[in-house]
Amino acid sequence: MDQAQILPGTLDLLILKAVSLGPLHGYGILLRIGQITNSALLIEQGALYPALFRLVRQGLLRASWGVSENNRRAKFYELTAAGRKRFREETAGWNRLATAMATALAARPEEI
């Protein structure tokens, strides 16, 4: 299966999306992203963590230690209010960009 290199800046949005569906630990976020993108994107696993720390510092995520489904201690991430707001804004922004790009790329000579 071919995997696309992830665009710079999109990892944060993907993490926000993944966590917006419910609190997750790091590995869980990775699995969730794989699941919702049909594993179409290539993410270096370790690279997830600096992004998570950055989002926590920015106040968009909250981290807390808890116990996972198989009774292992794990650090869970969830959205804060600010995170939820940012997620909505970024989603809207992304959609605008994607639409614009799609339209632009679909343009044919006779339409101009």
């Binding site: 270096e44 696993q45 370790g46 690279a47 963590y49 600096p50 992004a51 720390f53 950055r54 510092r57």
Partner: peptide
């Protein structure tokens, strides 16, 4: 191997904390 450079990410996390 899939996880990548343990030490490198630890430092990046540190940096990400500001």
């Amino acid at each position: 191997i899939e996880f990548g450079g343990n030490q490198r990410y630890r430092e990046e996390c540190h940096e990400a904390m500001g």
